[in-house]
Design a protein around this nucleic acid. Sequence first.
DNA 1: TTCGCAAGATTGTCCGACAAGTTATCATGA
DNA 2: TCATGATAACTTGTCGGACAATCTTGCGAA
Lengths: 219, 219
Amino acid sequence: MTIRLATQSVGEALVASLRERILTEDIPAGVPVTEASVVEAYSVARQTAKAAIERLVAEGLLERTTHKSARVPVLDERQVKDLYFARGVIESRCYELLAEEGKVSSDAQTAHDSFAASAEGDDLPSIVYEDVRFHRALVDSLDSPRLSRAHELIINEMRLCLAQVQSHQLLDPAEIAREHQAILDAIRDKDPRQAADAGLAHLAHAESKLLAHMAAGKA
Amino acid sequence: MTIRLATQSVGEALVASLRERILTEDIPAGVPVTEASVVEAYSVARQTAKAAIERLVAEGLLERTTHKSARVPVLDERQVKDLYFARGVIESRCYELLAEEGKVSSDAQTAHDSFAASAEGDDLPSIVYEDVRFHRALVDSLDSPRLSRAHELIINEMRLCLAQVQSHQLLDPAEIAREHQAILDAIRDKDPRQAADAGLAHLAHAESKLLAHMAAGKA
DNA sequence: TTCGCAAGATTGTCCGACAAGTTATCATGA
DNA sequence: TCATGATAACTTGTCGGACAATCTTGCGAA
């Protein structure tokens, strides 16, 4: 088995950069991301830019119809519900399975601790990041590449709307930390039903706040 | 609202064609799929071929490392287990949710009937196709684009190994039909636990047969 | 006002070219 | 003999330019 070096082609780096800029709202929703604009910004060939855009479209971080420019999608209520629903399907079952084992991986515990630490401060982006990291660590601990990937795709799309709505302020970090703790407790107690319910409650809580905020913003 | 015509660009058609050829083993596992070979076979530009290959790599239907040709992956035991596991996570929760509703969509029922009809005959590819269609119809009836997409990705990869191993003969169609019926019955009975268990049992059954066959073939 | 056409913007696709990396072959020297 | 290093062939990574097809917009004509 060879040791794999972490090299990155221009194309891969471009995708990574664009993805990060989208998720941090450096590229805001609505504005067109044309192939030409990417070419100009990064001094890459149009092919490279095009491939990167197509990749992000596949990930749901950009949307496009033929012969029109790609844009960061603005997620409406329907989409948000779908995201939370799909995420709930995966996470609830994951927590159930983890609870059957009754063990919390060290990564997940670390992520939980990091979140708790962030929750003390006011660095909103880092709170969101640590929140995401916690849930991903739990799913990852099932050690299923395909499940982790499916979860990651959904989470990334969700980060999109979390960024758009300044939702960080909607939720009390301390309360999120308590809900996270409830999930971990249920897992450690080997109570699958409770673990799944705690996960779903956590999601339902965030979803309702987000939807209420969106409805208010639109009205 | 405009009516959307089902137009397809060369690139999209190329992806679709390659995907179908891979899933039907017209492009067998192991043989390299070079950009040049695709260019030659379809008379398209290398960029177009490259983009199509990259897309299929993202779907898991091809694998590639930098500067080496793409190939249809040969799934080992570990991968097969992961596929069944991830699929189980999604499907079990789906059937649970459907059982809470207690209704089976007409599409799902139609798919079940089609499968039963196919099971009578000897057309193995169509049996596999109808089997896949049944499960997809159930997931689709939850009306969640993102969940359906995640499920589709996993199912497609699974079709890959179903094609590689001539597994059609491993399972008795009549038995599959009975297991499908059990899932539908549990859903109609509004018995979420039973629906999920029936789904998982169905998968475990297929998985064990497949793994046994693979182990035998390798030994 | 409405229709239709021309112009600009943007993507879809192609061609050709060169750099960079991988693999296999083979000659070299210890 | 065998490890080393050079070479060539193959393949992908990236670039530049070009033209066609399509969408959008604005303007002029009926």
